[in-house]
């Protein structure tokens, strides 16, 4: 965590609203991205993200290590997602939610894509998103944190309260699942 962020966290802990807003602005997209990958629904992800920051606001004065803010925030997010899964509202809305209309590039193998290649690329992006979605929740969680949020194994283990070996094992199984789900897209 940048030194300035630690200072910002300390200010926010003393009730500085602008400091809290700065933390929000810095972390809202990654936290939203994590939650969105876990629940696959935009509106729900926005609601849960808001709740994550609300919980963070409430608990911030009790955070003993301001330097650990990021991991602490993700721990709140992970708990919030689990609370959601435990709630009876769990439904099947995530099954068709991977078809968002984002236009990000997934595989840029050819710098001059024609319509067919664009379609393939879009199809691949959806296939990858669907493959992530098919992962068991505890595997998806570590994949998103490690491969999309860039957290290392130790940080994830600390955040989730599990052994590092457990995180490695989940990552490995998830990777094997992903490879199996995407086999058709990776044949040469």
């Amino acid at each position: 965590m940048p030194e300035s962020e630690e200072a910002t966290v300390r200010l926010a802990q003393r009730g500085d609203r602008e400091a809290f807003r700065e933390l929000f602005e810095r972390h809202r997209d990654p936290v939203y991205g994590y939650v969105r990958q876990m629940v696959r629904d935009e509106d729900l992800a926005a609601d849960l993200t808001q709740d994550v920051f609300l919980r963070a606001y409430r608990s911030l004065p009790r955070l003993k290590a301001p330097g650990a803010f990021r991991g602490w925030l993700y721990a709140i997010a992970a708990n919030r997602v689990r609370d959601h899964w435990r709630s009876p509202r769990l439904d099947a809305l995530s099954l068709d939610a991977s078809a968002d209309d984002g236009s990000g590039d997934v595989m840029v193998a050819d710098p001059a894509p024609g319509p067919e290649r664009v379609a393939v690329r879009e199809g691949l992006r959806e296939a990858v998103a669907a493959a992530v979605e098919k992962l068991a929740p505890e595997r998806r969680e570590v994949v998103v944190l490690h491969h999309l949020q860039g957290m290392d194994v130790r940080a994830i283990a600390g955040m989730l309260g599990v052994a590092e070996g457990t995180v490695k094992s989940r990552l490995g199984r998830a990777r094997a699942d992903m490879r199996r789900h995407l086999m058709g897209w990776m044949e040469e």
Binding site: Y32, A46, G104, V128, V132, H147, L148, R179
Partner: peptide, 19 residues
Amino acid sequence: RATALVEALPREVAPEGLW
């Protein structure tokens, strides 16, 4: 490659008005 594809997924952006 399987996980590299995951890493290449576009990053999500939080909706406007969340603050």
